[in-house]
Design a protein around this nucleic acid. Sequence first.
DNA 1: CGCAGATCATTGACGCTGTCAATGAAATCG
DNA 2: CGATTTCATTGACAGCGTCAATGATCTGCG
Lengths: 154, 154
Amino acid sequence: MQLMNDTRLIFGESLHRLMHAYQRAMREGFRAHDIDLTVAQVRVLKCVAAADAPTVQGVAARMDSDRGQVTRAVAQLRERALVTQRDNTADRRMPLLAITSSGQARLARVIDIQAAAGRRMAGGLTDADVARFVAIADQMTDALHSDDGAVVDG
Amino acid sequence: MQLMNDTRLIFGESLHRLMHAYQRAMREGFRAHDIDLTVAQVRVLKCVAAADAPTVQGVAARMDSDRGQVTRAVAQLRERALVTQRDNTADRRMPLLAITSSGQARLARVIDIQAAAGRRMAGGLTDADVARFVAIADQMTDALHSDDGAVVDG
DNA sequence: CGCAGATCATTGACGCTGTCAATGAAATCG
DNA sequence: CGATTTCATTGACAGCGTCAATGATCTGCG
């Protein structure tokens, strides 16, 4: 139990610094390769590419993000002709998004950069380590979400 | 190697969502317990409490953060009388920071809240899992840092 | 059908965080 | 002593997350 306190207390700091370093690596990689996109725009672009019938609402849910934020990112991606939006006859409130071929090309380059960063980051780690890390991270995220409205009583 | 690509590509997304959920849990916990501090202020407060002869520069280095950002956080903590600043006779450019008893009391409450959030988050995980997670995270951060100026060549 | 409430995209406003540049004070090195 | 460096501080700005308001559209109910 003493161990738990020690470990849990540095946890937030470790997570914060890793996130920081990762975001910075992404930003630098994007800049070095003239990818004119922010991290958030890339996340949205990925979701649009991966989803079946992507809408702002769907992307926001998948990213656990604000709808307004997704709307803005989509607007910026549309300005760059990386994403299109067309009317949804089934529900006119939710236009359907789609990635363009331009967007797919850009995304392919982004994925290369991210893979390179991932390789750099996981230099001394095995695939099993990385997989374990991701599994633990997802489990933690789920635990926090399942408890969403719960009051934290110290 | 195909596994690696799969795992590494979702890695960023997992990390992002975990960070997001964690920050949100912290913010909500602080608000619920009337801790009138931001996440960054808490991080600085912790560093000041833990360091030997804390200065803005030292805290910034430890947090891998901008000096200006630390200066602002310190200013806010000083407004709340959680941190003090006194002249450093050895080097007058770098005033020495110190946590007040008020600050220590506040920090103790924060640590309780973070421990509770950690418990919630790591519900189904063993201490060993958490320790492993932290170890991997730190190793990744170091790997990214050691390579700092390196160009990412996809 | 017609109306009330719900859901959606969009927009505006605001705060926190991170980055960069400029300034002035103080130390260091020659 | 003078040039350079290091430091805290401040200002400006962008990215990101949150909240609230608006208007369009859908759904369910009488």
